[in-house]
Each structure stands twice: as structure tokens, then as C-alpha cells.
Computed example of a mutant assay.
Amino acid sequence: MPTDRRSAGTYELLFVIGIIAISFSSIFVRWSSADVAVIAMYRLYLTNLLMLPLVWRYRHEWMRLQLRQWGLLIASGVMLALHFLLWMASLRLTTVASSTVILTLEPVFVMLASYVLFRTRVNRMMLIGIGIAMVGSIIIGSGDFALSGDALVGDLLSMLGALAVAIHMMLGKHLRKDMSAFVYNFSVFALAATSLAVYNLVRGIPFFGYEAKEWGVFLLLAIVPTLFGHYLFNWLLKFMNTAAVSMSVLGEPVIASVLAWMLLGEALTIYQLGAGMLILFGVWLFIRHGDKE
């Protein structure tokens, strides 16, 4: 934890930068016309390429990994790949606002799974927060269904993507007890990208032949939301409270919706605005009253 105001201010600034960075993810995906599985694959492979210069430094840690740890790393990578596949597909069917706000249900899914598997304590305010967030999700779904059946499918894909990343996060939390952030992230990114490569190979999706603009989008996704977003949050966990870092999920849909309005011309409907506020408030209550680590 930071011990002085200057350090705290630096970490808070980096936290804001991270929220802005991850908010660009949905915009970059919309800018690409490539298959979502290709976008996700190259996003992760290019992130690994950028991290490559530091790999040698951690070689001894990789050599000490046990078979069980590799099994959990593979499971975490597959779940991350599934998350990207489902969530990016949702952006082709529904709006940025609906897709990103539904993703904020991730910590709710994590707690529900923790309760079922480990009997983690859930207090009354957390249950109220879960209820409010779920009501908001139902309202978004009903509003989008009134507009388009495809939009509702997109909402469902985003929710399944949130469930997949929740499993990924639970596995990561367990693995990170005995593993550095670099080794965990590099391994999972590589395994997720390889899972997507196998998926593309089976489906016959081409690996090459994309325009320079597409490669630019792949690289932007690797640098901005991945390194300056997700990786930065993992690093900040060493200096900030976990609950505070978890609040980043509340900032992404707000900034992403504004960016979508500015850069994509998307407008918010009354359903999305009202339901989005309900979801964000419910998730805020849930995180605010959750157990502190």
C-alpha cells in the first residue's frame, strides 16, 4: 500500500490511465473487419511479442512450474480465449454500451462461484447489489430485444463472456499465490492465443492476407487495453486494495459508451441508460460491501 500522498497520487493516476486504456478495446474491435477469433489471437500473440525481451529473466521460474500448475494455466488460457471470442462477437450484434455494461457482472459471477465452491461469505448488501445488477441486465435484454433479436443474442454472448472471464480470474487468483505476474500473464496470453489459433485452423479462418489497417488494430489492442490496461491493473494489485482495483469495471462502460458516441456515432437509448445505471450501481454496492483482502 502507498505510504505517502505522492505515491498514492501516482498509483491513482495510473489507475485512471488503465481505465481509459481498457475502454478503447471495444472501439478497436469495431474498427476491424477481421473475424473476432483472429482479432483476439493476434491481440494476445502481439502482446507476448512485446513482453518477449523480459522472458529470459524469468526462465528459472518457468522451469519450477509443476504439472498441476501447467494444467491450471491451460484452463485459465482457454477461459480467456473463450471470453474474448464471446465478448468480441457480442460487439458485432449489440451496442458498445450494452456489451460493456453487462461485462461488469464479472465480479458478481466470481463471488457466486466462490460461494458455491468454497462457501465464501456473502453479506446482505452484496446480495442486494447482485439483485439490482441482475434486474438491470434483464431490462437491457428486454430493451434490446424490442429493438432487435440480434441485439439480445449479443447481450447473452457478453454475459457468457463475463462468466468465462470470471472463471479465468478465479484460476488466476489461485495461481498468482505462487507465481509472478509476468510469468502468469505471459503464459496465459500465449496459451489463450494458441487456443484461438487452433480454433481458427479448424474453422479454416485465414491467418494472413489482412490489410495494414487490420494489423494496426491488432497492435493497438495489444498495446493499449492489454498492456496499459489489464497488465497495469495486475501490477497495481501490489500497491492498491483489491476492491479498489476491482472498481475499474465500473469505469469501462461509461468511458467506452462516450467513446462509441464520439468515434462510432452510437447513441444511448433510454433502456440502456437506465438499465446501465442500475447495473453499475448494483455492482458498486457489491464491490463496496465485499470482503476486503
Score class of each variant (00 low, 15 high):
3 T>G: 03
5 R>Q: 05
9 G>K: 13
16 V>F: 14
20 I>F: 15
33 S>A: 14
43 R>V: 07
43 R>Y: 08
43 R>S: 05
57 R>I: 13
63 M>E: 13
68 R>K: 08
75 A>L: 14
77 G>F: 07
80 L>E: 00
80 L>G: 00
89 A>N: 11
89 A>M: 08
92 R>K: 10
93 L>Q: 08
94 T>R: 11
100 T>G: 12
101 V>Y: 06
102 I>V: 06
103 L>E: 08
112 L>M: 15
115 Y>M: 10
118 F>N: 15
122 V>Q: 10
122 V>I: 15
124 R>C: 11
128 I>W: 10
132 I>N: 09
133 A>C: 07
136 G>E: 12
136 G>L: 09
138 I>Y: 09
139 I>Q: 13
141 G>E: 08
141 G>L: 06
142 S>P: 04
145 F>L: 15
149 G>N: 06
150 D>P: 04
152 L>V: 07
152 L>S: 06
153 V>H: 07
154 G>W: 05
156 L>H: 03
157 L>R: 11
164 A>M: 02
175 L>V: 09
183 V>I: 10
189 F>L: 13
193 A>T: 11
195 S>L: 12
205 I>A: 11
207 F>Y: 11
209 G>D: 09
213 K>N: 14
219 L>K: 01
224 V>E: 05
227 L>W: 04
229 G>C: 05
242 T>N: 08
243 A>Y: 05
245 V>T: 01
248 S>E: 04
249 V>Y: 03
255 I>Y: 07
259 L>C: 03
262 M>I: 10
266 E>G: 01
271 Y>E: 09
271 Y>H: 07
272 Q>L: 00
273 L>H: 12
275 A>T: 00
279 I>M: 01
282 G>L: 01
282 G>I: 06
290 G>I: 00
291 D>K: 03
291 D>S: 03
292 K>L: 05
293 E>R: 02
